[in-house]
Design a protein around this nucleic acid. Structure first.
Lengths: 278, 278
DNA sequence: CGACCGGTTGAAGTATATCAAGTACGGTGG
DNA sequence: CCACCGTACTTGATATACTTCAACCGGTCG
């Protein structure tokens, strides 16, 4: 049974080679354009310092169609991707065919870092919308690291960012009530939007309820219900995938789930406050 | 009560500086011993190739007491640690004081990688038992990466391993039924033990039920119940923290949770039936 | 137009959180 | 040494929140 599913799966989603089509607009060979792209790449990776030197490797940009796989789970790859625009979900297909969403990636996020040491992709990566990615062959990445120390720094920064993202995701799922999970998901999305310079109030979810549900480990009906319940509470306004945050404080309250647990009075809050403010 | 618990906690656990005491046995300055330690470090990191050259940086090993923090959440650090022996939990303290366990680390795992680019620890790291760690100041790590390419490779490998571990953890928590989560946790632990060359059948859990519960996002009572239920089913034998896996296949079955989900054709229900029957 | 997909809503059963009590163990102080 | 306390684990009873099954609606696409 999971057999034909798998087959079907591969047929409709195509192979990554077919899914990734070189962008006619951006994938140029002209050196100047490359240099410009490198600065863009550095900016994407969160590099603050100016590293505007030209680089000796070509930087190719690829376009990815919605629902196309950038990387198949378990696929050996020699290329690491840096998401440039759009959004991507990280998925694992469980034995029973259930598609577990593990993370959502936004511009600047790394895709398939395991390629850097010749490993296999530990998750699949599926575009949620039209995306563009920088494709960085491992050997080119190695060259860049040697040539351009700021790049090396930026790469490490990006990698550790991925790890703290994983922690954040875990924190989202950890909430007791499903409503709190959904609330946290919205807050998390808002935070990421803010970091990207987009509006943290008006969210446009690129994934369906089912994906959100999978990410949060709840039933998709529950996501739906939680959203309407949050909307009724006045926290948010929901229009299918367009969500507007109306009352941030209220939403924050709903996001607190408070599993009974190791309650330890009133010491910690200080540091978190700062985070909440940002 | 929880108030004095915290106080007590801080007193006994001390600051990380105090908690980390240099090992009198291993922290030598003699170059030969360093070289030996470097090979050990490489082995820990999973390096297959032989890189038995001496290195120009001193490798210090630290000892960590049970319940002591190797790294405090949010702490700025310039040192990355490689767990050498023992086990460690990665924790985040939520606003309400709940201690969320995010991961369990075993020998070879990296602790505080964010130090490599001068970031802050995104989670705290608490020793579950007596541990030893390699302490690698960021600049030494940089030197090693330059001096010894195999080290660089090994480091990347270790980093990406952390990321796939995060995916595995997420998969554990994603299970619908709490019994499945516990089963997956046991299987995961067994897998890690096997990878370490220890017995995957006889597990000695170093953490309490509360920690497991937190990791799996269930109530600790539920962990307890699930364990006894698995034991009654003949999968395992439980003796507080000593667990023996009796029937791996059975345990595997229990670990399959099968959220309805992406129903693929009409065959899915079958699997559920079997599970329900078992 | 009908089929399909994504989202919402309803109803019912159950799994699990929660509260509460009881046991066992290890340390501490008398 | 024993009584005592605190902690960790187990087990029980109850209520509720969630999953699940099912129907329905509004789009979009062929």
């Amino acid at each position: 049974m999971s057999q034909e599913h798998r087959m079907n799966f591969l047929q409709t989603q195509l192979s990554p080679l077919a899914a990734l089509t070189p962008s006619p607009l951006r994938c140029r060979m002209a050196p100047l354009s490359q240099a410009g792209d490198f600065r863009e790449l550095m900016r994407l990776l969160g590099s603050t310092g100016e590293a505007l030197r030209e680089v000796s490797v070509p930087l190719s940009i690829w376009r990815v169609r919605p629902q196309a796989q950038i990387l198949l789970e378990g696929q050996a790859s020699e290329t690491v991707y840096v998401l440039r625009s759009g959004s991507v979900k990280s998925v694992r297909t469980l034995e029973d065919g259930y598609e577990q969403v593990l993370a959502i990636a936004y511009p600047g996020d790394l895709i398939g870092i395991e390629a850097l040491h010749g490993g296999q992709a530990s998750t699949g990566w599926v575009a949620l919308e039209d995306c563009t990615v920088f494709a960085l062959p491992a050997r080119d990445a190695a060259v860049l690291q040697r040539e351009c120390p700021p790049f090396e720094t930026a790469l490490w920064r990006a990698v550790t960012l991925q790890i703290s993202h994983a922690a954040e995701t875990a924190e989202m799922v950890a909430a007791v009530s499903s409503e709190a999970r959904v609330a946290r998901f919205l807050l998390w999305t808002a935070q990421r939007m803010a970091a990207l310079g987009r509006s943290p109030r008006r969210l446009v979810l690129r994934m369906g309820r089912r994906d959100i549900a999978s990410l949060l480990s709840v039933a998709h009906e529950t996501v739906s219900r939680s959203l309407t319940s949050l909307a009724e509470a006045g926290c948010i306004e929901v229009n299918i995938r367009d969500i507007e945050i109306r009352d941030l404080d209220l939403l924050n309250n709903r996001a607190k789930s408070t599993r009974g647990a190791t309650r330890l009075s009133e010491s910690a809050p200080v540091a978190r406050r700062e985070l909440a403010a940002a």
